[in-house]
Design a protein around this nucleic acid. Sequence first.
DNA 1: TATTGTTATACTCTATAACTATA
DNA 2: TATAGTTATAGAGTATAACAATA
Lengths: 172, 172
Amino acid sequence: MPTFDDQCPTQEHFVTRVPQKSVGFTLSQIGLENARQFALVAGQFGLEPRHFAVLHALADRDGLSQQSVGDNLSIPASTMVSIVDHLESAGLVERHLEPHDRRTRVLHLTGAGRARLTDALRGAHEHEARICFNFTAIERAELLSLLERVATNLGIAPNSLPDHGSGTHPEH
Amino acid sequence: MPTFDDQCPTQEHFVTRVPQKSVGFTLSQIGLENARQFALVAGQFGLEPRHFAVLHALADRDGLSQQSVGDNLSIPASTMVSIVDHLESAGLVERHLEPHDRRTRVLHLTGAGRARLTDALRGAHEHEARICFNFTAIERAELLSLLERVATNLGIAPNSLPDHGSGTHPEH
DNA sequence: TATTGTTATACTCTATAACTATA
DNA sequence: TATAGTTATAGAGTATAACAATA
């Protein structure tokens, strides 16, 4: 933990002058703005970020139960209902009864759902290119590497981080 | 905009396999988790992130009007009322009438407010050290530099970014 | 007429707990 | 009795618009 102190004056300096930028604040600002803009991108495809996330999870592994998807994405069961309702009424997902246990509803992507996700992923891809504008491949990899170390410091297991898309921020 | 494509397979690959991590999603995840944890830190000092942000703004420049602080932090006027109400009833801030224009309420930090902010800044400082654990000074500077380029790409003027603290995320 | 602060209100989001149907 | 899904409800947070005082 050698770093930060080197650049930080005294406490009083903090209060009166307010010194250099912090990683924490910058991350919060950027994370929020990024989530906002990604919501706009997803919206162009008729999806909210959470809809996108659910479709994405199903593309990764089709036939999951509603609950296991929710657990995976940290979405409570009651919220999952309205999300899947929306996706189902839009014809993107189907609820199938599981013959072995008729309590559970197994979720399947429809063809339309897969097509919609493909489009939305194209949008996400463009969004990613936009926020990494002017980055070389090496710089982007460097940023990802640093961010994953921050994630570790925050106690977010790297493995629990989904792999693509732009977040499931609530708030807007 | 050369980078991302190099590492990205076809669209179909996206849908079926879901490839590598994205800067966008990682930033959203980290930004949200960081805001959560900073809210806990601020809470240890009896402050919500927005309370902290207002105190911080006043420490930077005392005697601002309620509205100009709100504009500065993108907090709507009606929300500023309840924030300042809270800070005032806690004895951290005072509303003074401006003799030249008796519509405006000028905000002043009290001694207690300044002391509270000093404590909270110490907490923020520790929080910053925590999320930058194991970073060298050079790595931290590198991360900040990359993040500011992302901020620019997101259309957030670097100048509009406050300098310390950990964000004013709503959402929880 | 425009502006600062205030109040009241409506809206969104989320979480909690109760309910059903299965097991 | 426990679990998957559903429903209903209440709470927090935010934004919108009307209002008062002042300019």
